[in-house]
Simulated scan of single mutants.
Amino acid sequence: MAQQTPLHASHIAAGARMVDFAGWDMPVNYGSQIEEHHAVRRDAGMFDVSHMLALDLEGADAKAFLRGLIANDVAKLTESGKALYSCMLNEQGGVIDDLIVYFLSDTSYRIVVNAGTADKDVAWMQQRLAATGTQAKLCVRRDLAMIAVQGPNARAKTWAALPGAEAASAGLKVFQAAAFGDIFIARTGYTGEHGFELTLPVAKAAATWDALAAAGVKPCGLGARDTLRLEAGMALYGNDMDESVSPLDAGLAWTVDLKDESRDFVGRAALVAKSASKQTLGLILEDKGVLRSHQKVIAAQGEGETTSGTFSPTLEKSIALARLPLGVAAGDAVEVEIRGKRLKARVVKAPFARNGKALA
């Protein structure tokens, strides 16, 4: 039986269509996925992301441990609440997961990992803690729920729903978080829009969801979340990268920090030994059809493959992220093989849309 988030009853009461996602019973939409998508681009929408997992790492060696665990360098984090996006790699340089780390102090960090990889991630971290003899403890926080509020009016409507939250969070910059009582408010998201991700006690989840709805924030499901993140050029674990794919090939080289040559992290040697063999770019389909994942792309420089694809409500065209041969550039014409036919597409740089505007 699929697991349920603390907001499951709220979704059922709102008439959500529920689907199994990574072993969780989650809302895919509440009626019109297109309307939910536009609500986030134009106003404010909210997503239940409680299936994702928060982990707290605390101890004298917490900073040193993370510097050796992930490809980005947490030493760059010096201000409490500041966050960092990174990949956690295996020894071969493949991506075990992509995650966010929040710096609370040199001995205290919060890590948020994906739902589908949560158990694997915890096991890997515990294994590394034991192998390195680290003086730090990893705490699994299933006592917390998470709600993402996204869109140009998301912050104002969150403040209307949570009296007092504005004073605690108005000055937050992107990828920065602060505590508001027992609510952790972060200026992060997965849509390409401004907004917050709220981490809060399970007991407060339903009332907070209802307060946000009363403030005019539209409930949105996984369907809109996927079209929004793809328009924003954001990678999805399992589609755009996995344990067989290097971040260098997945368009995530910017998350790898090799500046400090004395810092050794899991997968570093593999990345240094092998440069990128592919690149990740965007595609816009010019013929009629729909781009999906794992479709062959034919370019003058060789063959590639779409990794994520969908219909873009903002562009009103089919779009995709694709892993393409080196040498392919924005503006190039390529063909995508769909159901035995080769359809014309144009290469672009992602993102396709962000902050309410079409960019491609």
Rank of each mutant, 00 (worst) to 15 (best):
S10P: 00
R339M: 10
A269P: 07
I111M: 13
C87N: 12
D264T: 01
A345E: 02
A2L: 12
K349R: 09
M1V: 08
T188F: 09
Q4Y: 11
G189I: 12
D106S: 02
D119E: 14
G192R: 11
W24Y: 11
L129G: 04
S50Y: 05
A165G: 11
A353C: 04
M26D: 04
R141Q: 05
A168G: 07
E166G: 14
V256K: 02
V272C: 03
A270Y: 04
R346F: 04
K317R: 14
K173Q: 14
H37D: 11
R128M: 01
Q279N: 05
D106G: 01
K137H: 11
N72A: 10
L104W: 10
L89H: 08
T5C: 08
I96Q: 09
I100L: 09
V328M: 00
A177D: 06
S32Y: 09
L162M: 15
K218G: 02
A270S: 07
H11I: 11
S246V: 01
S318T: 07
D143C: 01
K120C: 03
V245W: 13
A115W: 11
P313M: 04
V272H: 00
K218L: 15
K204F: 00
F265S: 06
P325Q: 04
M146E: 12
M26T: 07
F65D: 12
G164Q: 12
V272K: 10
R141N: 03
C220Y: 04
L230I: 15
D332G: 01
E35C: 08
K259V: 10
I319M: 09
